[in-house]
Design a binder for these strands. Structure first.
Lengths: 245, 245
DNA sequence: CGCACCCTTGATCCTGCTCAAAGAAAGTGG
DNA sequence: CCACTTTCTTTGAGCAGGATCAAGGGTGCG
């Protein structure tokens, strides 16, 4: 966790969120992803430190004092909640440009772990909140992000409460493809940044059902599974039918 | 939908959110529930209109243009999402003081209906957003509300994805009791503001399973069900055990 | 090469769903 | 005020989707 250098934003403000292209410059990344103004970026650069995580490494646990807000630079982060007996529900996967640690009064309301190798920017919450006072536009953007999260959470509730296994898997694939497209990646071949156990805990299934259902979609020619971590969408319209019953 | 009179906030700012006590004064209600400052309340009162809904009456559908933000004054509102074949997931119940219609870019991301008779304040979104420019503190409070919603949504995902029927019902009862307590109602006898079908669609169950599971809790002496719409918590600690596996 | 981990596949079980019907409440109109 | 209808809730019987238990196959790494 080193203090960041003061980085100047580059001219372009509309690039993709592919921070992998810019591993040494989280602030430029923020400039891209949160569309911050120059003054805001300068301020942010002064309070940010960096965190690097290996796969499965924990960022924080549910209930930890919510001292930091994070922004994902590269990799995939999983958020989850646990029951006392170990059952787990993954509530979301975060990708470059996403924030975490916003919603927390008293303690983080979920645990966070790296699904893959990951890098993050870390902002001490009190100092970030002080910045909000000066730059209300910043908070506004975080508000928008939180609202998008809420809409996604509502979609996920519909999925968890009312969809069958095949509808869950189909929805999941389509979601991944859409997110990949937003990050300027192919929307037809998506790489799974998580293992079967993570997928199961995200969709409210077991790993066996996930595996069986994926195999079934493959046999029906809807997708191809060239490797366990890759999905090719062969018949998107069919997948869309399946996703919504 | 009549324009509201300009109401002055009363002295106390920490009363309960029991707007039923103040049916003719939504703005005072807002003063209580959102802890707005005087200037803000005056502004709000000028742009607010009122909506009254009968049980099962619809406020808006998913996808409708998100022209208004609402604040619940009295009654219970249910938010839901539908699948094409009619399966429904209720994503939340809103009570006096709660906001709805915040998270919406392009269209409301859920439908909203009255579960009981209900009254709401209605704010035209563009005018509300103009007020946010002048009174950033207002937006901040809505931000906090949205964040609480998000935390609740994550709890609900854990419930929907990983809890058994009896755990779901136990969690539901405890949640209702907690919310009732916050509104200065008894935390031991909770009145169900919704029918079995709503409960089932909220918990990702069928009405039959809801009914059977409630009966089972009654036979085990954990709760009493004096009427279909009332639950008395007899053994709270047992309920808490059941709620978390 | 051998071990560990992840994924797949098979057999069986069980929780919660479906289908069916009756009982309880709550409107509705005479 | 009461008979009738409608809607909501409860209860029962049987079924099935997905879980559990168990074993085997791949793949990567030391």
């Amino acid at each position: 966790m080193n203090t960041l250098p003061d980085a100047r934003p580059t001219s372009s403000r509309r690039g993709s969120c592919s921070a992998a292209d810019c591993p040494s410059c989280e602030v430029r990344h923020l400039t891209f992803c949160a569309a911050l103004a120059d003054g805001e970026v300068d301020r942010l650069s002064k309070i940010a430190t960096r965190a690097r995580l290996a796969p499965e490494e924990m960022l924080f646990q549910e209930g930890d004092p919510p001292d930091y807000v994070f922004n994902v630079i590269s990799g995939t982060i999983k958020l989850y909640k646990l029951l006392p007996d170990g059952r787990r529900q993954i509530t979301g996967f975060l990708h470059p440009g996403d924030f975490l640690g916003l919603a927390s009064s008293g303690g983080y309301s979920y645990g966070a772990e790296a699904a893959t190798e990951a890098e993050l920017c870390r902002f001490p919450r009190p100092r970030l909140e002080a910045l909000f006072e000066r730059y209300p536009g910043m908070e506004k953007r975080l508000f928008k992000f939180a609202n998008d999260e809420l809409a996604a959470a509502q979609d996920q509730m519909l999925l968890l409460g009312r969809k069958t296994a095949i509808e869950k898997i189909a929805s999941f694939f389509l979601n991944l493809a859409e997110k990949a497209k937003k990050r300027n990646l192919s929307g037809d071949t998506v790489s799974l940044q998580m293992n079967r156990s993570d997928i199961a805990d995200y969709l409210g299934l077991t790993i066996e059902t996930v595996s069986r259902t994926m195999t079934r979609l493959k046999h029906e020619g809807v997708v191809d599974l060239p490797s366990p971590r890759e999905v090719r969408l062969l018949r998107r319209e069919r997948l869309e039918e399946l996703a919504e019953g």
